[in-house]
């Protein structure tokens, strides 16, 4: 039934900074963009040191972030830009409340994993993530972490591919 993956194995980008807000992720000067294809190139355009992520990121890469990621405005481009880059999962210490629901609704996987930025992981490490159990592993560094798994409804929305698809599937 599931059309979205719940298991990921890929390399990570670690953005070890708290309170990265939506203006750093997707600056307000690009808010006129509503087409997904055009969003990726502006990802982290206002986050010093990370402006080149769109050039460096490869399809399937994962993002690991600090606390309160996505604080600030409700703009959904700050979620959609990662979809545009092919980043299917963001793991963070915590997320801004609106950001979290935007991601769930848009069918982007988010995992809350307190302690992940202090676990010894660095950019380039390859990790295994099981979204059903919340288990995160990095075999090369012998690191095992436990993220909060999605609740059933959140998982249902994610697996359906977003809020609207979920609504259609149960109506």
């Amino acid at each position: 039934m599931s059309i979205k993956p719940t298991h990921f194995k890929s390399r990570i980008w670690l953005v070890d900074e708290d309170n990265i807000d939506t203006d750093m992720i997707f600056h307000n000067k690009h808010l006129h963009i509503t087409k997904l294809d055009e969003m990726g190139q502006h990802t982290f355009g206002n986050l010093p040191g990370w402006e080149d992520l769109p050039q460096k990121a490869q399809d399937g890469d994962l993002l690991v972030v600090g606390g309160n990621f996505g604080a600030g405005s409700s703009r959904q481009q700050a979620v959609d830009c990662f979809t545009a880059l092919g980043i299917p999962l963001i793991i963070g210490e915590s997320f801004g409340a609106i950001y979290k629901r935007n991601a769930i609704n848009a069918g982007v996987a988010l995992a809350e994993c307190p302690g992940i930025t202090d676990s010894g992981l660095t950019s380039g490490d390859v990790i295994d993530v099981n979204m059903e159990t919340g288990e995160i592993k990095c075999d090369a560094k012998s690191i095992t972490l436990q993220a909060k798994p999605f609740s059933q409804v959140q998982m249902d929305i994610y697996q359906a591919g977003g809020l609207f698809e979920y609504g259609k599937s149960v109506s």
Binding site: S74, R75, Q76, V79, I98, R101, N102, N105, A106, S151, V153, I157, G162, L163, F164, G167
Partner: peptide
């Protein structure tokens, strides 16, 4: 409370949303 664009589209269509 604040919501995103998918939320708003869903709310327009069906008049209800999920909340924790």
């Amino acid at each position: 409370t604040g919501i995103g664009s998918t939320d708003m589209a869903a709310a327009w269509a069906i008049g209800e949303l999920w909340f924790r």
